[in-house]
Nucleic acid binder design. Structure first.
Length: 671
DNA sequence: GTGTGATACGCCCTCTGCTGGCAATGC
DNA sequence: AGCATTGCCAGCAGAGGGCGTATCACAC
């Protein structure tokens, strides 16, 4: 039945756990009526490594013969030997809730056969102690081990230790004895004592026939060396929901950190609703109030209710502003003394009792140290449900969730811009709406930067030593710092660094030198596809093609503003204009040309005359003059050959200024 | 039963630093 | 005109400080 059926008590485990006692070192007789259940504190006295080495499935199976095991009772159990049956139980799927719990059941001592069956590979930790047939099993002990809390191997070792340690417990308890092998065994409660117990509870011996003892195992405070067993009665008449209750026990145990030590011989009261235990009745009773909604103490100001007078008083202080605990070193005051102590540590004494073992960090509060340690371990327990992000504390996750919700809770009170974080808004207000905006000056180049973080970027990009040399574009100099390289390259700015080896020509750009060299080599790399005529520059080819091979080309017509005569070229119109204007005779002398050039230039600048294409004022006219003149397409020169002549003539002086350009044009015009 | 210190959890805050889009600027 | 550079700026996350509150252990 019990051994083979998955109908393991579960819900009852939570129901039957009346206020329990720790049974240790012999419990007082006068309190026997309270001892329905118990909590046993077990201490590891085995050798887990040996056990682990013996069996991959764990110590229990390792130490117990595969088919039979004789159990030796605890010395104090009246010398009876009890052999119990161990039986593995494979739970069926509809009892999945049990699969997270391991069970051990002890059959009555009259069943002197112990059989260990290999648990299924899927459920290696699921082991029953019970009679082979299980049909006659009327009492048993079930041990629940939380798989969630331990790795499989650890859990199994612990399982063994539970049994092993029960010898000690049982030997002194004589109420509920579990022992296994020489120093281990599993013994059900002694019949007579059990009956006495039941009588004390007002029950009957028959009632005991249907009772299970549920034992919950959980780790002790200091790790694997101590285990807490919580033993409860189980009523077999209510088995229907046991799987669910078994799951409930798993969850319950997971949520509670057991910290109970009972090395001292004293009673412990166990909470019916949680894992809480206490040796003091007053504490236990006070704890019980946490599970009730009984809050008899009413706040007359907001009608909120509280369990205790102290809680109510503290609450009322929040209404009245009463803060009886005042800091002697500042104006702060607090409702509780604990708050004051903590405040003084933070602000005045700087006492930080919680120190990190991995760094120098220390904190006033343990929770802060715990949070800090996550920065060492990388643990991120708080997982975002919408993305892969996980944070180390709840607040960061909450803040992160704004990236999904789009929430921007912080608003600039001046321009009403909204921000996701208060710090961002603060920077915004400071930079945009404040008068005394702090500036950060680079210590290396005196650059002023508004934000410290951006100064850091500036330093990283421009002033960081680079192991790889960065070479100057214009010379052989090399630098390890980007800023130094940039400053150096600026020294090349006004240099005519490119000098012709065949003549005195010099220029600033290499591309100009390449064009110039063609005047020495005679190279004409640009060939007209229509007539195979070759040109030294692409612009000349383009002009040629438009004029002679492009039927859609419409030459610009320039009209004289005085007489309306049409000219195909801008410069011809202006030459005409000089003659047409007030009958003044044109001059072809150099002085006169220069004067005309200046007049022409000024006229164009003043907007009195239409600017020839390519003769606009530019910021970098020295570098682009030749290109600008070259783009005087559309027949601005007297003819194509004149343009070519111009190009060739100016090829060696590309950096001439605008006046020179105009003069050159006028010279050509004069031709 | 109550007061008090200790503990734990949660919330909110600041400071810090990195990232990438954007626009101005220079080449 | 196109491209590279760089400061400005908002978004976002890491780390830690400070405090409010609930609960427990213990002494009285």
């Amino acid at each position: 039945m019990v051994a083979t059926e998955p109908s393991v008590p579960s819900e009852q485990f939570t129901k039957i756990k009346e206020p329990e006692l720790i049974l240790e070192n012999g419990l007082q007789e006068e309190e026997e009526e309270e001892e329905e259940d118990g909590v046993c504190i077990l201490k590891d006295c085995g050798t887990p490594r040996e056990l682990e080495a013996e069996c991959a499935y764990g110590a229990l199976q390792a130490r117990i013969p595969e088919d039979e095991l004789e159990l030796v009772p605890a010395p104090s159990v009246e010398g009876d030997k009890h052999i119990l049956t161990l039986q593995a139980v494979h739970l069926v799927s509809d009892e999945a809730g049990l699969q997270e719990t391991s069970w051990l059941s002890a059959q009555p001592p009259e069943e002197m056969q112990m059989v260990v069956q290999q648990a299924s590979s899927e459920l290696p930790s699921l082991v029953w102690l019970g009679e082979e047939s299980a049909q006659s099993l009327q009492q048993c002990v079930a041990i629940s081990v939380q798989e969630e809390l331990y790795s499989l191997q650890e859990m199994e070792v612990m399982e063994f230790n539970v049994l092993e340690e029960n010898v000690l417990v049982a030997s002194e308890d004589s109420k509920l004895v579990l022992s296994l092998a020489e120093n281990s065994g599993l013994i059900k409660p002694e019949k007579n004592e059990e009956e006495d117990q039941l009588r004390a509870e007002g029950g009957s011996a028959e009632g005991a026939e249907d009772q299970f003892f549920f034992v919950e195992a959980s780790p002790g405070e200091d790790g694997s060396h101590e285990i807490v067993l919580t033993i409860s009665n189980v009523n077999f008449e209510e088995h229907e929901d046991r799987s669910a209750s078994g799951q409930a026990n798993v969850e319950k145990a997971n949520s509670v950190k057991t910290q109970r030590k009972t090395k001292e011989a004293k009673r412990t009261f166990c909470c019916d609703h949680c894992m809480f235990t206490s040796a003091r009745v007053s504490s236990f009773n006070r704890h019980l109030k946490t599970h009730t909604n009984d809050k008899p103490h009413l706040c007359h100001l907001c009608l909120k209710t509280f369990r205790t007078v102290t809680l109510l008083r503290n609450h009322i202080n929040t209404h009245t502003g009463t803060r009886p605990y005042k800091c002697g070193d500042c104006d702060m005051a607090f409702v509780t003394s604990g708050e004051l102590v903590r405040h003084r540590r933070y602000k005045h004494t700087h006492e930080k009792p919680f120190k990190c073992s991995m760094c120098k960090y220390a904190s006033v509060e343990a929770s802060k140290l715990k949070r800090h340690i996550r920065s060492h371990t990388g643990e991120r327990p708080f997982q975002c449900c919408l993305c892969s992000y996980a944070s180390k504390d709840t607040y960061k996750l909450k803040r992160h969730m704004r990236t999904h919700s789009g929430e921007k809770p912080y608003e600039c009170h001046i321009c009403h811009a909204r921000f996701t974080q208060s710090g961002t808004m603060k920077i915004h207000v400071l930079q945009k709406h404040s008068e005394n905006v702090p500036k950060y000056e680079c210590p290396h180049c005196a650059t002023i930067i508004a934000r410290k973080s951006d100064l850091r970027v500036h330093l990283r990009n421009l002033h960081t030593y680079n192991a790889t040399e960065m070479k100057c574009r214009y010379c052989s100099a090399a630098f390890h710092e980007r800023y130094a390289l940039i400053q150096h390259q600026k020294t090349h700015k006004d240099e005519k660094r490119f000098k012709c080896e065949h003549c005195s020509y010099a220029c600033k750009q290499e591309r100009h030198m390449r064009v110039h060299l063609r005047t020495h080599t005679g190279e004409k790399p640009f060939t007209c596809l229509a007539c195979n005529k070759c040109f030294r520059q692409k612009q000349l080819l383009n002009v040629h093609f438009k004029k002679y091979h492009d039927s859609t080309f419409i030459p610009t017509v320039h009209e004289c503003p005085k007489c309306g005569k049409s000219f195909s070229r801008w410069n011809n119109m202006h030459r005409h204009l000089r003659n047409c204007d007030a009958g003044e005779k044109s001059s072809t002398s150099g002085k006169g040309r220069t004067k005309r050039s200046a007049v022409l230039k000024e006229a164009v600048k003043a907007g009195l005359l239409p600017a020839p294409k390519g003769l606009r004022q530019t910021e970098n006219s020295d570098e682009t003059a030749i290109e600008e003149v070259s783009t005087m397409s559309g027949g601005q020169f007297p003819d194509e050959m004149a343009l070519v002549s111009f190009r060739e003539a100016t090829a060696g002086s590309e950096d001439m200024d605008e006046d020179m350009t105009c003069e050159m044009i006028l010279n050509l015009m004069d031709k």
